[in-house]
Simulated scan of single mutants.
Amino acid sequence: MANSPSSETEIIEHVVLFNIKDEDDQDPSKVNAMVNGLNGLNSLDSVVYLTAGPILRTRSLPSSLKFTHMLHARYPTRADLSTYSLSDQHVSVVNSFVKPICDDVFAIDWAVNLVGPTVPRPGSAMRFTFLKVECEDEKEKILEGMKKIKESLDPFVQISFGENFSDRGKGFSVAALVVFPDLIELDGGEEYEDQMRSLIEKFKVSDDHFIAVDYVVPRLTPVTPVTTNHLIDELSGQKSD
């Protein structure tokens, strides 16, 4: 489901960061199985858009955290996000692929009236920024600052931001996402980076309260629920019927 560049759609943003434990020594087939299993969740009816893959680069991260992969998804409502989370396929992927090889998971969710496509094109480059802001007054001012950044950059990029409602966000309370057409545009997006950095410095957000990661939307071959079941059988050494 996609919408025209000028239309506005209410959606829920869902971002999960994963850390593959002992990544250098990890069996690549298990990492690939996790990524393929996660991408297979885009077949669920409650999902508008979903991709998973390696983080391109980390621009800022508290010293206590490390992340290697991420999932980004969009849903029409919070009820749809809940339906996705509780679905048998999602639970199976998490238990079979994620938990055995990941030692840390971080999730942030927020609601937004999104302007532009709800389904980013493959090759689109994204920058995710998460802030830990405990003061409610400062949180509101930061969100207002993000609104001004959005207004100053429209219609050149898509910007989504809001207050986190996930209880798995390790205390991070504000999220922002900017979508550029490609990596070249992201690397050249100095105006957005300067404005965001200025906002962070204005409210004295410390490095330990600031996460920024870059991600490129992969070009995916559709993965069906049946294929996901085959992955589970293959990983467990069983032959699928």
Results as ranks from 00 to 15, higher is better:
Y75M: 14
K148Y: 07
W110D: 03
G123S: 10
Q89T: 15
T83R: 15
S85A: 15
M126R: 05
V98P: 00
G123K: 06
F97T: 03
I159H: 01
D80A: 12
D104H: 08
S85D: 14
D80F: 11
P100Y: 08
P122L: 04
G123I: 04
L143D: 05
E138V: 12
F130G: 04
S96V: 09
R168M: 09
F130T: 06
T129N: 07
L153P: 00
P100E: 11
A79Q: 14
L81R: 09
F97Y: 07
E144Y: 09
L143A: 05
V93I: 10
L153T: 04
R168Q: 12
K148H: 12
V94Y: 11
V91M: 12
K99L: 15
H90D: 10
P76Q: 13
A79N: 12
C135A: 13
L81E: 05
E138C: 10
S82N: 13
V133R: 00
K141C: 05
S160N: 09
T83G: 12
F156H: 14
V115W: 14
N164M: 03
K99E: 15
K148W: 07
S96W: 07
L81A: 09
T129F: 03
S160G: 15
L86V: 08
R121A: 15
R127K: 11
D88C: 09
F106M: 02
V133S: 01
F106Q: 00
D103V: 01
D80K: 15
F161C: 05
T83I: 11
V119C: 11
E136I: 10
A79D: 10
N95I: 08
I101M: 08
R127G: 06
Q158T: 13
I149H: 02
V93W: 00
I142M: 02
R78Q: 09
I108G: 00
G123V: 06
Q158M: 10
M126S: 05
H90M: 10
K148Q: 14
Y84R: 06
F97C: 05
V115A: 10
V112W: 03
R78F: 07
